[in-house]
């Protein structure tokens, strides 16, 4: 298990190094240097040279790359050109909003999707099972930003049940919670169908295994067999999916945050793109990628911990 953990951590360092290098190449090497892009065509030579020195672009490329990688791994993402604040502070300030949104999205999806998948697995090929099949395929395919816009149109504009935009007044927990309902619904809907489908398939497989047959032969109640013996095994693949899904939700939250005009790392990235603030954009991409990679590694480690078959094979 220690060797496996070290392997996964090494892999995450490799992925982060590749990401940082690719970002460096994209932003600092390809034509259209970030200084011209940031200052625009009217910038004087003096302004350009001052910004180049401030960004360290007057040094050799390899030195810049090394500094870029070393600084990123030590958490120094540079200083924002406009607000003059450390980028790590700005990005980490926005991150909790996105984490909360993603947690709520995948949380309600798991709370509904897992029991739904379990229930339909016990009624295989029945009407409920067939309806779940259609529901899953539809919700998985629907883009979350379209669900968000339709949700906004129905519940905010037409019915006026829920507030439309923003994250709510600071300190007003009830208002903030109300403003989270629609975004978390939009971001989690696809995951309800996906998790239900995963748990259903996994549950059907587990229920046909020999140890479950033996429990039935011993006369245990079906509900006890399902909840005590089958479900803990059937949800193991779902843990990996939730872990990786959480990472992808951090990325998918971009469009939801833009639609609902919510603060978050996605909205911050979008604003950085629109204002051509490349250092901030780089910082946001690195923070999101780090979260994404950490989620994947955490999911892998959790599965190895939960599943004795994987643990023994390590």
């Amino acid at each position: 298990m220690i060797w496996y953990t070290a392997q996964r951590l090494l892999w995450s360092v490799a992925v982060m190094t590749i990401t940082i290098s690719v970002l460096f190449c994209l932003i600092y090497v390809i034509p259209g240097d970030p200084v011209s892009m940031a200052l625009g065509p009217r910038a004087t030579e003096a302004m350009r040279s001052e910004l180049m020195t401030r960004m360290g672009l007057d040094r050799p490329v390899l030195e810049q790359l090394w500094r870029f990688i070393a600084n990123a791994f030590t958490g120094d993402l540079g200083t924002d050109m406009w607000s003059r604040q450390p980028i790590s502070r700005i990005a980490l300030g926005a991150l909790p909003h996105t984490l909360l949104l993603a947690t709520l999205g995948i949380g309600w999806a798991a709370l509904i999707g897992i029991p739904l998948g379990c229930w339909t697995a016990l009624r295989r090929d029945g009407l409920a099972d067939r309806l779940l099949g259609v529901f899953s395929a539809v919700t998985i395919a629907l883009p979350s930003f379209v669900v968000a816009i339709y949700g906004l149109l129905i519940f905010s504009v037409q019915l006026k049940w829920l507030p439309a935009l923003g994250a709510g007044a600071a300190g007003d927990i009830a208002d903030q919670a109300r403003r989270l309902i629609l975004p978390s619904f939009a971001i989690g809907l696809g995951w309800v169908g996906f998790l239900a489908r995963m748990v259903r398939a996994s549950m059907i497989e587990v229920l046909s295994e020999n140890h479950i047959r033996m429990l039935r032969a011993f006369g245990l109640r079906e509900s006890r067999i399902v909840l005590r013996y089958a479900l803990p095994i059937a949800v193991i693949p779902t843990v990996t999916i939730i872990g990786m899904g959480f990472g992808s939700l951090l990325s998918g939250a971009v469009l939801i945050e833009i639609v609902f005009n919510r603060p978050g790392i996605g909205k911050l990235t979008y604003d950085a793109v629109m204002s051509r603030n490349f250092p901030l954009l780089t910082g946001c991409v690195l923070v999101t990628t780090a979260c994404y990679v950490l989620c994947t590694v955490a999911a892998d480690l959790m599965v190895a911990r939960l599943d004795p078959r994987i643990r023994k094979s390590l």
């Binding site: 992925v15 971009v254 990235t269 991409v285 994947t296």
Partner: peptide
């Protein structure tokens, strides 16, 4: 495989925004 796994581990929309900016 390392390069492909690394790409798979990148957040699609965030990277799309970065590429869109560049």
């Amino acid at each position: 495989m390392l390069v492909f796994d690394s790409i798979k581990s990148l957040p699609l929309l965030i990277m799309a925004l970065a590429l869109g900016a560049v």
